[in-house]
Design a binder for these strands. Sequence first.
RNA 1: CGGGACGUGGCGCAGUUUGGUAGCGCGCAGCGUUCGGGACGCUGAGGUCGUGGGUUCAAAUCCCGCCGUCCCGACCA
Length: 574
Amino acid sequence: MRWSEAFIPTLREAPADSEAVSHKLLVRGGFIRQLAAGSYTMLPLGQRVRLKIGEIVREEMNAIGGQELMLPTLHPAEIWRKSGRYELMGENLFKLHDRKGADLVLGMTEEEIFGMLASELFSYKQLPQIWYQMHVKFRDEPRPKSGLLRVREFTMKDSYTLDIDAPGLDRGFDKHHDAYVRIFARMGLEAIDVEASSGAMGGSESIEFIQRSEAGEDWAVTCETCDYRANVERAVSALDPIDDGEPTELERFPTPGLRTIKALAEAHPDIAAPDRQIKSLVYMVDGEPIVVLLRGDHDLQEQKLLDSTGAPEDGARPAQPEEIRELLGADPGSLGAVGVSDVKVVADRALQGRVNMTTGANEDDWHYKGVDVARDIDVTTWADLRQVTDGESCVKDGGSLELWKGIEVGHIFKLGTQYSEAFGAFVQDEGGTSHPIIMGSYGIGLERGMAAVVEASHDDGGIVWPVSVAPYELVITVIRPDDQNTMATANRLYDDFDSAGVDVLLDDREERPGVKFADSELIGIPYRVTVGPKGVDSGMAEITERKGLVRSELAFDDVVETLAERIEGARFGI
RNA sequence: CGGGACGUGGCGCAGUUUGGUAGCGCGCAGCGUUCGGGACGCUGAGGUCGUGGGUUCAAAUCCCGCCGUCCCGACCA
């Protein structure tokens, strides 16, 4: 491609209001343009990157036996009602009506449709199957953010494994795990696989791939001394034992004006250190009030609450002060679960067996002391609810846990049989007995992956694409396109690189050298061959690697062969 | 949804406090000089000031409604 004929609208100035570097660089470099909140146009450069990422994904999916298909994105709502996800997905699911008034939805993943297709299988002999597609998904995100990192419309590679038994599911899951490791490595990412919450997807086990990045929105912990790693939505940690002393009698005591854990602890350090208090929160879960109990110094991890109650994705919210007063008769700051019997009480396991605790008395300015959790509180459900914090101890080996932030670039789920049962996907085994097909589902967001690569690989001058996903592998920067000799040499090189199979861009624009250098660095082309009158006279081409801007010289006679070989070697990405 | 900010040529912004004929930089077009790290001169094109209403002799500017976008909090590939 000749740059002078290409649509590569680079900008000198970035959008001022976005946080993410990847967004600024992709906009400035002419890769993407925003249409609306969470809707992006892929310009030619962006589309080339997107297609290369898609091709890596396709190769690796095919390598594990995946068969590519394509399903509609516009679905009858009935299908989603049948799986239960019409309600479960809440507001995140785009819902619309056609001219006849029929309810439709736009797919956010497609377990339902793949489940329906799977009902065309009848025998164990037809299993296992790995089916996938790369197609648009819609999510009505409450807050699209950070450019391509969180959008409302994006391309997902979603795949599904179909097996007759649990060992089969495990094999399909492991194949995907391996494929994902290879995909992210080939893209130039260092995504870490962590235990995760399955959320609204359902199922038993799931693993997220997270790329460390300040621009990310996911938090995970890793143990510094063993292989434990988990998303905070799921992560657990070991707690140091606390000496509560001997159990004593439950007793009310006045606490005028003490409305926070901290204030109470400071006023009564002997009995109410934060880890001796019970923190009481009220949540509306699926429309029903629930009292949530945690140790005073612990924070609630909301996903854990959702997981433990099976509530829809957006089904939990903190209760309003008025709702709390009506329910418990006091304002936040004096709440407690002692004597509460007609409301569900979900308590964190860290409170199990604790005695001599302090908690609110459900009357403003009064607390209880001497609380014996087992004796004084009617706990409906025990669950792991607290959020792990940085530096706590690993449950596996006691090592220190590090809490870090990253971008979720992939997520794999062991689903089970909920969709196959809902859509009648059963197969018979050797003995003629019917079994629901066991499904797994696996997703990668292509555009998010693209942004993650930029987050992971850029410098002050712009993007530094790995060869494997670069929109062009090499750019020929012509210093004096008006000089016939120079342009002739550049044209010859261009043809030779093209014939050698290199994705080459010829910068023949009538621009000054500085502009061309800066632009090629901004858009991140891995290799640059500079062709100018000086070099043409001496027979030497100047080579600049984008990464580190390392320069070297090569004779024009050797440059194509040498660089084509080097690019070929880097193209696979590992 | 709660909190904050913004909306003015393609991009980045000033102008709004104190109403009076819409400006700057970049970019773009033409000509000329330049040309190995974001050149310069001259000439020129390009704007319903997000939108609807109101106040006023007069509204980018004041008032009200709506829409949109971004950022901070609760959610996902």
